[in-house]
Amino acid sequence: MNSITARRRHPLARYAVILLALCLVGGAYALLSPTGDRADAAIASGTNDDVANGKALFEANCSSCHGLNGQGVPGNGPSLIGVGAASVDFQVSSGRMPAANSTGPQAPRKALPEWVTPKAIDDLAAYVQSLGGGPTRPTADMVDPAKGDPAKGGELFRANCIQCHNWVGAGGALTEGKHAPNLNKSTPTQIYEAMITGPQAMPVFNDTTITPEQKRDMIAYIVKVREQVDPGGSGLGRIGPVTEGLVGWVVGIGLLSLASIWITAKRRAKTK
């Protein structure tokens, strides 16, 4: 018998065993889990502090679906290696991520949870960028609508975007219950990031085929059109002939039916 086994029936023995087990497992995990070359990536995308904060936030809020190192969990969340800071900024700043427990066919834009502040997004983005690179976030200059040419942007928008998002970005249907959302609440940065990262079902429009200047033109068009007045009255959602037909029948025929009832109504005689 040695000193450890002699104390095996000590009241605190079980806690000592648990502590030992935790240290063993934790130490093994720390030794064996991949860490990657974080130092260089951290320099490229942010300070080491940002990345560390981001990692903490990631583990708390994202890892249950995306894995502790962003490698993805089949059936829950895709791998985030290589998606880049732009993806994170887009998904988190629009509230799409963290997704609710049952997302349905797609993760929609929703209200931001309390912990999502601009700093939190920066940190998260820095961390994910450090995992494997990917598209970076555009600068303010790159998405400034005032610097874009809306006419040129409109031509590109009509060629590549409206088939899903509709002429003015009012949104459109996709298969299996998915839909392309409307663009009314998207910031210029989010629009740029969506194009470059291709979130969910949206295709990818990288910078080598649609250049950053062209993207800025498209942003200028989208912003200009959604802010401009509807000179013909109420835009009726800018959806098109479906709402126009509905209004024509309900308002037009409805009002005229009421008018015809009034014109031909006979007055009640006074009763005795």
């Binding site: 088939q163 899903c164 998002h165 509709n166 002429w167 459109g172 479906v242 037909g245 509905l246």
Partner: peptide
Amino acid sequence: SAGSQPDF
């Protein structure tokens, strides 16, 4: 465009 319909 998405949502292309003719008149009613």
